[in-house]
Write a protein that binds this DNA or RNA. Structure first.
Length: 835
RNA sequence: GCCCGGGUGGCGAAACUGGUAAACGCGGCGCCCUUAAAAGGCGCUUCCCCUUCGGGGGAUCGCGGGUUCGAGUCCCGCCCCGGGCACCA
């Protein structure tokens, strides 16, 4: 008997699948397309190809592949593509360090990913493979950019961005770690620069509302996105300054506290700030303050226990509800990015305003009665954030603040001093990067076409796309994009007037590339259009998306935004890209996140070489619930490898000792028991797939089946028809383990059944064999377990009671006591309550 | 501070709508096979106490209360761990 040799069988089946292109599926209109077959789009987040795949990849694709196989065997036409998110910083940083072009390192890494995906036996439709850094792909990224630009959804403006003074470059938020540049450790500052943005805020409400369209997303991911969007309802109220004459709208969620406003604060970046103090005694101090704040990092400014600072402006505004003049300040606790960059300060009912008022000795006024010991900081019980009757609020006195809320807003609206308003925490998406390794932003600047001395932004016409990345010498950013150094490339012709023009030298954030790749998979080789509508309509939406929680906010929200924008443009028919989302947990080692510096990384290749891909894949699915994390242990992989070897040996033995086509004999108790176990396992594994991919328990069910087969097999081999039960059990185990250990399943199943496992429908449990004639009756006295008795499954209540009372163990506890209550749960238990 | 997860043996974990706590795996212990080892097979393994060695009793799912015939599961109050957001008006 040959022993389990994963290397041999794995390469054998990988060759078959490659040769036969087993996992390729046709589009509508293509040969072999079957319109009657339901489709299922199973997708794992595409990898960023840097170095070698790690265990996180192994887990993600093992989980996704199990789902793909499960659906195929339920009659679905499963599309299961793969690609590479191949633009990005690591390749570029490597280029800066070594001078090797990013394309070279990227190609090397992609090769490694391709090789390992094949070695893992992931069922990928390779005909649809793509990489986002190729001109064939980013041509369409640029096309989408221009589509958004035409709609006014892409725009260029001057904005404060994170700037590293040492590297002289803008940094993405992700590149800022604890307020410092991730590369050189220099403290990041804010700087104003002209940047490209996508108007995602326009979609804030739809991004919130359409959570309802999703079939199944983890609740925590939805919550994270909801918080990130941060919708608040409130009112916009206008405060007027009489000298100089200026209106200052503020956003507030508490118009009911308007009567308690005792001062007014502007953000240091507020555009009217310097105008207010110019030529006044306050000018010097305000200017110094603003400059000082400007030099501080966002980290410092947002620090938890930062003391309130600010400067009085020597100006005042009028509170529209009571005509009171209140003094103006500038303070850094007011943020320009949120609301209007100005606030009315209500120290009596807001903790931050309270702190500021105390420090600057400003009046604190109560306008709502009530107390809350949690928030109160003084004898008056202020600040108070709760509800209650109004006071000191003129004609609203005595009313509950909740009711007054509506009335005040209505009244303000009548007076033309306010209106209801909604504010979002979400900001527009900054997409330009002063970096080389990304898709060039496809616009040119033309002075001749411009007005008032400003250059016009002229989009590159579709037929001139892609705007290809030029080859350059030095990849290091010098305060502007490295592309700016490619002078010949920058100097171009204006598509509008034919005169001299300059190319945009910024590239796009790589999140742009990954916001639409799932659509390109559907028509990946199309050179005429980004995708054919029929193909997109057939396959979208993604039925099951799988990836790490770390993408819960950015990637998933950007992709949702793109889908909605593309739907509005008439390019797709769905509003949501991912109907179902599965967020897998992170694998740790020795209880810690894996990292090279910690030296606790796990190389999947090493384990695949040692135990085979099937063991590695099955292990990552078995280590715990896949949505939770888990700690990688070598013993764990060995354990799974032991199980697969055991299944292998069982199948080998069964092939030798039993005949192929005999009907199992249900009359022999052991044969029936084993068949029942097999059907139980079918039911259990199927249910575990359906109930949120509980693969750990699914695999344990197959383990139980194999254990039972081992326990019973030697007695059953003797007869032809009892041997058939063992054959059925072994074949069932092979069939059920196939989604996790496809090579083993593929090898062993046809040897026992003559059929290819992936062409065979997923088994269905026989209900007759799922129920047994007898059950274990649990007998409790006062809720405590006293005995277990075998009883007929259909036995009536009286019989169960009689059985329970007949038990000696039970009788011992009834002795001398009175039974006051009898509880019978048919088929389960009897509980006797005694006194 | 706010919003999510989660606390069950030595470890990873299981337990469907309240009904046998610890399935499955790891580790450990013992036995069988073997000249020996590896591999493999079989069994035991939550803790404490009593035992005439057949077994018997008690405790136990982060802590404290409650509902119930019965709570890991439901309710109330706390503690700890992980993640996200954080001066958002």
């Amino acid at each position: 008997m040959a022993s389990y040799d994963p290397k041999a069988i794995e390469s054998k089946w990988q060759a078959v699948w490659a040769e036969e292109r087993t996992w390729e599926v046709p589009n509508p209109g293509q040969p072999g397309f079957d319109a009657a077959k339901p489709k299922s789009y199973v997708l794992e987040m595409l990898p960023y190809p840097s170095g070698e795949p790690h265990v996180g990849h192994l887990k993600c694709y093992a989980v996704g592949d199990a789902i793909a196989h499960f659906r195929r065997r339920h009659g679905f036409e499963v599309i299961h593509p793969m690609g590479y998110d191949s633009f990005g910083l690591p390749a570029e940083n490597n280029a800066i360090k070594t001078g090797e072009p990013p394309a070279v390192a990227t190609a090397r890494s992609i090769e490694s990913f391709q090789r390992q995906f094949r070695e893992w036996g992931i069922s990928i439709d390779w005909a649809r493979e793509l990489a986002t850094h190729t001109p064939e792909y980013y041509r369409w990224t640029q096309w989408i950019f221009l589509q958004l630009f035409e709609q006014g959804l892409a725009y260029r403006t001057e904005a404060a961005v994170q700037w590293c003074p040492k590297d002289a470059t803008v940094l993405a938020n992700e590149q800022v770690v604890d307020g410092r540049c991730e590369r050189c450790g220099t403290e990041v500052i804010q700087r104003k620069l002209w940047q490209w943005f996508f108007r995602i805020t326009e979609y804030a409400d739809r991004l919130l509302a359409d959570f309802d369209l999703l079939e199944s997303w983890p609740e925590n991911v939805i919550t994270m996105q909801r918080n990130w969007i941060g919708r608040s309802e409130g009112a916009e109220v206008v405060f007027r300054c009489n000298d100089p004459e200026l209106d200052f709208p503020v956003f507030t969620t508490r118009p009911d506290t308007l009567f308690g406003a005792t001062f007014f604060v502007l953000a240091p970046e507020h555009p009217e700030l310097m105008r207010l103090v110019e030529g006044t005694p306050a000018e010097e101090e305000v200017r110094e303050y603003v400059n000082r704040i400007g030099r501080e990092s966002a980290q410092e400014r947002g620090a938890e226990d930062r003391e309130k600072t600010g400067v009085p402006l020597g100006r005042s505004v009028v509170n529209p509800v009571n005509g009171e003049e209140i003094p103006m300040y500038v303070a850094d606790y007011v943020l320009m990015e949120y609301g209007t960059g100005a606030i009315m300060a209500v120290p009596g009912h807001d903790g931050r305003d309270y702190e500021f008022a105390k420090k600057f000795e400003l009046p604190v006024v109560r306008v709502i009665e009530g107390e809350d010991s949690e928030t109160a900081r003084d004898d008056e019980g202020l600040p108070y954030a709760g509800d209650g009757p109004m006071t000191g609020s003129g004609r609203f006195d005595g009313k509950n603040n909740r009711e007054a809320y509506e009335e005040i807003v209505e009244w303000l609206a009548e007076e033309g001093r306010g209106k209801t308003a909604i504010n979002y925490r979400l900001r527009d998406w900054l997409v330009s990067r002063q970096r080389y390794w990304g898709a060039p932003i496809p616009v040119v600047y033309c002075d001749a076409c411009g007005e008032d001395g400003a250059a016009a932004i002229v989009p590159v016409p579709d037929e001139q796309l892609p705007v290809e990345l030029p080859e350059i010498e030095d990849y290091a950013p010098q305060g502007k994009s490295p592309l700016a150094a490619a002078e010949e490339w920058v100097a171009t012709e204006c598509p509008r007037c034919g005169g001299p023009a300059r190319r945009e030298t910024d590239t796009m954030d790589t999140f742009v590339d990954s916001s639409w790749y799932f659509i390109r998979y559907l028509d990946p080789r199309n050179a005429e259009v980004a995708w054919e509508r029929a193909a997109a309509d057939h396959w979208l939406a993604v039925d099951q998306y799988i990836g790490g929680v770390e993408h819960a906010i950015l990637h998933l929200m950007y992709a949702r935004f793109f889908t909605k924008a593309l739907a509005d443009l008439g390019h797709v028919s769905v509003q949501e890209p991912f109907a179902n989302l599965f967020a897998q947990g992170m694998i740790t080692r020795d209880g810690a996140k894996m990292s090279k510096s910690r030296g606790n990384t796990v190389s999947p290749a090493e384990y695949v070489a040692r135990y085979g891909a099937d063991s590695a894949r099955t292990y990552v699915c078995f280590m715990g619930p896949p949505e939770r994390g888990g700690d990688w242990t070598d013993e764990g992989v060995e354990g799974v490898n032991r199980f697969l070897s055991r299944l292998w040996r069982l199948c080998e033995e069964v092939e030798e000792r039993t005949a192929p086509s005999a009907e199992p004999d249900l009359g022999v108790p052991e044969a029936r028991e084993l068949l029942a176990k097999a059907h139980w396992a079918i039911e259990k594994v199927s249910k575990d797939f359906e109930r949120g991919f509980q693969f750990n328990t699914a695999i344990s069910a197959v383990m139980e089946l194999v254990n039972d087969a081992y326990r019973l097999k030697d007695d059953l081999y003797a007869e032809l028809r009892t041997g058939a039960a063992v054959r059925f059990a072994a074949a069932t185990a092979a069939s059920l383990i196939f989604p996790f250990a496809p090579h083993l399943g593929a090898e062993v199943f046809p040897r026992l059944t003559g059929e290819r496992v992936w062409e065979r429908e997923w088994p269905v449990a026989d209900p007759e064999l799922l129920v047994s004639d007898t059950v274990t009756l649990v007998v409790q006295v006062n809720g405590k377990l006293r005995d277990r008795i075998e009883a007929g499954a259909e036995a009536p209540q009286e019989e169960l009671l009689a059985l329970a009372r007949a038990s000696e163990k039970v009788a011992r506890h009834l002795d001398g006591k009175e039974v006051v209550k009898e509880i019978v749960v048919p088929g389960k238990l009897v509980n006797l309550v005694v006194r």
